[in-house]
Amino acid sequence: MNLSLLIGMVIVYLGVMSWLAFLGNRQTRTAEDYLVAGRNVHPAVMALSYGATMISTSAIIGFGGAAAVFGFGLLWLAFLNIVVGIFVAFAIFGVRLRKMSQNLDATTFPTLLGKRYHSKFIAVFSGLMIFLFMPAYTSIVLIGGGRFLQETLKVDYNIGLLLLAVIVALYVITGGLKGVMYTDAFAGLVMLFGMILLLFSTYYAVGGVVDGHQGLSAMKDQIPPPLVEQGHQGWTSMPALGSPLWWTLISTLVMGVGIGVLAQPQLAMRSMTVRGTRSLYRSVLIGGVFMFFMTGTAFMVGPISNLYFHETQGKIAIAVAEGNSDLIMPIFINRIMPEWFLYLFTLTLLSAAISTISSLIHVQGTAFSEDILRNLNVSREGRMNLSRIGVLVGIVAAVILAYILPGSVIAQATAFWFGICAAGFLPALVGALYWRNATQAGAAASIVTGFGLSIFGFLFLHQKEAAAFGLAKALFGKETLLPYPWTHVDPLFYALPISAVVFGIVSWLTRTSVSQIQEQVRQGFAGVGTVSALPPIKGQGMKKG
């Protein structure tokens, strides 16, 4: 690649992104503009922004590489990303979430839960969880972006990482959520174009869909023995039922990431940004196409790369990449795609990193200002400025974590974040949207149990994270406290059901207290489902407890 041409393209690209952030800035007049983009975002912008936020550089490179090792079984995650991550998130949850957030005048995910259950504790605790644990997830995306800039633009890793952090922080601070969503949507379009070309080129390179799959099926004897021992049965087969590989595939990737997206604050709050249910229905169409070409492409291209490498070099993908699965996608793309595509793919990966980081630090900023400080009555003035300070604190924390956390810990940040969010937030969110008799105590107990149990599981039971953190080893002298299969079962797998059961039991035990939040329930559900619409209320407070 011609480096000066590439740098020129990146500068033009960043110019367009900066102009979009400036456009967001010009349209941001009120706190509602800054926090929920004025609740009048175009459905195409919403769907592209949602998708681009969900898909980071590591999702394309990391998941594509993982699929090259594990095989097509990961397609179940692509299936869930479309059905749950798009259809359920927009057309089912989103419709209620949007209406309820408008009824209760809630501008963030934790504040929505807090107002719905009439509990400051829930809002502050949820905001605190985001503010404490999200920076680690942000830092892994930042690191991915920094390494990527180092490899492609030949800039120093430290400069690349800091440059990325500063650029994104500027977009968020100046443009608010409008700036974030406009830049996301442009980034999403670049990603969509790049991934569509990659998918069709890949199947074309191996002679088509059926021929490609048949060729890959015939390569079963090429699987490395260590993977066979772990349960690998071929790239076009699921791993052996109950094997370590099967548990990893099902519990972490499919369940954790597939279901976990529903409870991701930066994703769930996207439904609050559109004008009405019509926009959400339209977003389903755009989101369904976008997600297919993101996760579908990564999980189809990854396995197929084995066939291409075997035919051209006599080796499977992981052998060509010398054991580093993160190198499989870049090497494969370098081999099969024309040179001009490499420029486009560079912008695709840069887009994936920027769009994810911007949404994460926006949510961190609002967790700091809206969910924590405002609910603790620290300040009622200057909501936008407080949020901007929160953005700065969030991005500085992410940069510091990128340097001080060991690589082994940071690599687990995505699964950790998705897992604790699903276990902590999902039951309370479903209850908020569908269960009028859910009580404040039930929701609070569920959130605390979900976060507590999943964090305990990651620190002491699940081998990947427990070994990386080393806490179990330091305290009890062994890597994990329980034997297999607990070592390979994602904590979400048990923390989420237990959190849901606690929610039900505590709500039932405290069922007489529902009358105390009757007004919040009535207002929250107004116009949701079958109840007739009531005018939205402004400045609805919460009580402590």
């Binding site: 095989g71 097509f72 079984g73 397609l75 179940w76 692509a78 299936f79 479309i82 059905v83 798009i86 259809f87 057309a91 869909v209 059926v210 021929d211 490609g212 799959h213 048949q214 060729g215 890959l216 099926s217 079963k220 049965q233 071929g234 076009t236 087969s237 699921m238 004008r275 009405g276 019509r278 926009s279 229905y281 339209r282 977003s283 389903v284 169409l285 755009i286 989101g287 369904g288 196409v289 997600m291 297919f292 579908g296 999980f299 189809m300």
Partner: peptide
């Protein structure tokens, strides 16, 4: 089917394509 060895993988591949088509049809519209 579709050249896959395991029928559950065939379903996953087809399911992913059909889920995307379903979203298109469903969306197809204040």
């Amino acid at each position: 089917m579709l050249g896959m060895e395991d029928w559950t993988i065939t379903i996953a591949w087809l399911g992913t394509v059909l889920a995307s088509l379903f979203c298109i049809v469903y969306g197809a519209w204040d």
